[in-house]
């Protein structure tokens, strides 16, 4: 599974910055997130768990650009002091595939939007790796939900950005595909700053280097054990961590 993929031609991934958020997010006077302070360390994989509605997706959007009507009362920072736009890839909860584009054109959409040459070979290799190599000419409506999610993963990996925000990226996948895609993402994104929102404690236990549980009361940090990610799903440390996270989430609810 760790075959190297051809990199985006002619550029190395810039040193990833760490991310910091402190403050609240408001929507018309209603608090969507916080007040809270969260850091994602540079070059590490941070998983974010927590009950629905606590503002996990909103936190990701603070880094990628808040939508209209939301108001940030606080600060979003990159610890190298440089602006974040242009250095981030977001895999949102909805796959965001454009229905009139074939899968391969969806994967290379970023290049087209930036008026750059499209690396079709790299896109094809990525589609192969997510198991959609034979469907490169299909359009999204001709795919299952799981296939669409894998295509969105390929598109996110194609972006080749130092900071990657993942919002429940594997939620629509069956168990085997989920484990495979977790392995792929871990291999492709190692060394980058990853902030990964998930509802699945087992996923956090496999992938997270640091795990945060976000609740209405604040953030609780847990250092993951069991060696380098991705960890085998049946490892004792992973199973133990899954149980511990589940208990914490139950207590928080």
């Amino acid at each position: 599974m760790n075959r190297a993929l051809p990199r985006a031609a002619g550029r190395a991934v810039a040193a990833p910055p760490g991310l910091g958020f402190s403050g609240r997010v408001l929507a018309g006077g209603r608090v969507l997130l916080g007040p809270v302070e969260i850091r994602a360390e540079a070059g590490r994989w941070t998983c974010l768990l927590g009950p629905s509605g606590v503002g996990k997706s909103t936190l990701l959007h603070c880094f990628s650009g808040l939508s209209e009507g939301l108001c940030l009362d606080g600060a979003v920072t990159a610890d190298d002091g440089r602006p974040l736009p242009g250095r981030i890839a977001l895999m949102a909860q909805s796959d965001g595939l454009l229905p009139w584009l074939s899968l391969i054109d969806n994967v290379t959409l970023g290049a087209r939007l930036r008026a750059q040459p499209r690396a079709r070979d790299r896109a094809r290799a990525l589609l192969d790796r997510v198991g959609l190599g034979g469907l490169a000419g299909r359009k999204p409506h001709a795919l299952s939900g799981g296939q669409r999610q894998r295509a969105a993963l390929a598109r996110t990996l194609y972006e080749d950005r130092p900071v990657v925000l993942l919002d429940e990226p594997f939620s629509a996948l069956d168990v085997a595909n989920r484990a495979r895609m977790q392995d792929l993402a871990a291999a492709q994104l190692s060394g980058r700053t990853v902030l990964h929102v998930t509802h699945d404690p087992a996923e956090a236990a496999r992938l997270g280097e640091r795990i945060a549980i976000l609740t209405a009361r604040g953030v609780e940090w847990i250092e993951a054990g069991g060696g380098a990610a991705p960890r085998a799903p049946d490892r004792a440390e992973v199973l133990e961590m899954t149980g511990r996270l589940t208990r914490r989430l139950l207590e928080a609810a």
Binding site: G65, P85, G86, A89, L90, A92, G96, L109, G110, L113
Partner: peptide, 16 residues
């Protein structure tokens, strides 16, 4: 809106 947001994150200007 999420298509537009996504395009913006990918680095597209308003014209693109």
């Amino acid at each position: 809106a999420h298509w537009v947001t996504q395009a913006r994150i990918m680095g597209a200007g308003p014209g693109r």
